[in-house]
Every structure is written in structure tokens, then in C-alpha cells.
Nucleic acid binder design. Structure first.
Length: 188
DNA sequence: AGACTAACGTAATCATCGG
DNA sequence: CCGATGATTACGTTAGTCT
């Protein structure tokens, strides 16, 4: 479902670059850490990235995928149905990891200007573009990825909002204008 | 207090790599 | 070729900052 838009929209995903292949030692470090704490904060991600000679975002993918594949916190299952003692521990870890978030960036006007310009050109930048942008504005690639994620999302919400407002206006104005106003909604 | 938005969560899926 | 799993997405939530 989520992928419908994506496949229509982008070629960027066709160029995912090389996938990381962890050595046995690194895999052991990751597995041990995951078994102890499936939810880790920013500091731990950075430390693990250093230890395994990868990027902080790679560690994030690794833990995200493991949580999903180990059946952590399935939406369909209420928490009390999971193994209780383990689950309580993970809840604490989750809170702990939340308290250890990456510090929030305050983008400058010129950084935002650069990001917006790039976004207008391409909503789904590939690796090279992300790398270039990150260098240009002086933040990490993962922050650029997150900015694009959030920006796509907020643009989508904005469009829906505008479409709804247009609909309300039309309803207020009466039914006769039906055909013309439809075009207006689609162009915004 | 509420709006805005960076950071982060899950679930679904794509794509690459090794057997 | 196929299974395992790293990488990416949409969408929802949490929390910091500003007005």
C-alpha cells in the first residue's frame, strides 16, 4: 500500500547503492546489543556505528528491521498480550531511547532555501544528491533524508487540507460550479 | 496553549547479496 | 533462483521551539 505512490513516482529507489555487509564480529556486537536493548538512543547508535565501522543511520535500519522481524510491538496486538516482563523492560528502554534523541537541528534560512530548492527539483533524491546536499548545507546525510521524509509528508497533508478547503468552499457556493472547481483542486 | 516541524516509531515493500 | 536482510518508503506519534 505504502509503495503505490513510490513506484509511480521515483527512480531514486532503483539506485540504492551497495548494501552493508557486516562482518561476523560486527554482527555479534549488534545482536548482543539488540538482545539486551532493542531500543537504543542516539549516543548508542553513534557508538555502535563507530564500533562496526558503519553510519549511524545503518545502525538505525538494522535495529528497525530487527524489531519488525522479531515481532516487537505489533500494532494489532495490545501490549498486555505480549510476554509481560520482557515487554515492560522494552517499554522502559523505549522511554530511555526517547530521552536520548539526536539533538534537534535549527535549520538556517539558507539551509532551508537549499533544501526547498532541491525538493522542488526532485522529491525523491538519490544517494548522490543527498550526499551533495548534506555537504552543501553542512549536516549529516541522515538528517537530509529525514528532512525529505518529513517534507513529503507535510506537503501531502497540506495538499489534502487545501483540497478539503476547496471542497468546503464549493459546497458553500452551491453545486453549479462543480466541474470547473475540480480542475482548481487538482492543480494546487 | 497551540502551531510547526525535527526526530523517531511501525509496517510494507523493494533490491542486493550469498548460498 | 531464492531466502535473508539491508535500504527505503508512507504514515503516525513524540517532543522541542517559537509565537
Amino acid at each position: 500500500m505504502a509503495q503505490d505512490n513510490v513506484s509511480n513516482n521515483t527512480i531514486a529507489t532503483k539506485h540504492r547503492g551497495r548494501r552493508t555487509s557486516f562482518t561476523e564480529d560486527h554482527l555479534k556486537i549488534l545482536t548482543d546489543t539488540f538482545n539486551k536493548t532493542p531500543y537504543i538512543g542516539y549516543a548508542s547508535r553513534q557508538r555502535l556505528a563507530l564500533e562496526t565501522n558503519t553510519e549511524e543511520f545503518t545502525i538505525q535500519y538494522c535495529f528497525q528491521n530487527r524489531r519488525t522481524r522479531h515481532g516487537f510491538q505489533k500494532k494489532s496486538e495490545p501490549e498486555e498480550h505480549l510476554e509481560s516482563s520482557q515487554n515492560r523492560d522494552h517499554a522502559e528502554e523505549k522511554i530511555q531511547s526517547r530521552n536520548d534523541r539526536q539533538p534537534r537541528i535549527k535549520y538556517t534560512w539558507s539551509q532551508l532555501h537549499t533544501l526547498n530548492k532541491a525538493f522542488i527539483g526532485n522529491n525523491y533524491p538519490g544517494r548522490d544528491s543527498i550526499e551533495k546536499l548534506a555537504k552543501e548545507i553542512g549536516v549529516s546525510e541522515s538528517r537530509v533524508k529525514v528532512w525529505f521524509q518529513n517534507h513529503r509528508s507535510s506537503c501531502c497533508i497540506q495538499r489534502k487540507k487545501e483540497a478539503n478547503e476547496g471542497l468546503e468552499q464549493r459546497q458553500n457556493q452551491g453545486q453549479d460550479l462543480c466541474d470547473e472547481s475540480l480542475e482548481g483542486i487538482e492543480s494546487t
